[in-house]
């Protein structure tokens, strides 16, 4: 892993104390990251999920895109999940993908930890 990605992983661990964080080298200098037991919102079934994503080797200049959580995520009120959600595959396993792009990415601000926080904020706001 590049020093930038090691730093990103440390920031994620610091931002989510008490949550287990799995990190695996992606073989190209980047990392696969999975943060466990995150509250995604009481409006969802389940309300708590892991969230996984890949930090590619060009980080922090590349977007951290494609955040995944449990497969078949649903809303408690049975309303469809709507735009930004789709059923995809995370490392060979079914998963729900959240599609949130960072337009005009600022590498100093748009860290992997900040992006995860933004994805969680967005999910909780729906």
């Amino acid at each position: 892993m590049t020093p930038s990605i090691q730093q990103a992983v440390e920031e994620i661990r610091s931002a989510y104390p008490g949550h287990s964080v799995d990190v695996e080298d992606d073989g190209a200098g980047g990392a696969f990251v999975k943060v466990h037991d995150l509250l995604i919102g009481d409006q969802y079934v389940p309300p708590v999920s892991w969230i996984a994503f890949r930090i590619t080797f060009q980080y922090p200049l590349a977007d951290v895109y494609g955040h995944y959580c449990v497969p078949n995520l649903a809303r408690r009120d049975n309303v469809p999940l709507g735009q930004g959600f789709s059923q995809q595959v995370w490392r060979g396993e079914p998963a729900t993908m959240m599609s949130r792009r960072s337009n005009h990415l600022n590498p100093a601000l748009d860290t992997a930890a900040f992006k995860l926080a933004k994805v969680l904020d967005w999910m909780r706001s729906l």
Binding site: R54, T56, F57, L61, A62, D63, Y65, S86, W90, H104
Partner: peptide, 23 residues
């Protein structure tokens, strides 16, 4: 001068399989 899009960098780093998985 915004000629290296962060989105494109991320996409190009993926394998064909991962690109398909991200639709």
């Amino acid at each position: 001068n915004e000629l290296i899009p962060a989105k494109q960098l991320q996409e190009e780093a993926l394998s064909d399989e991962e690109r398909r998985a991200q639709a």
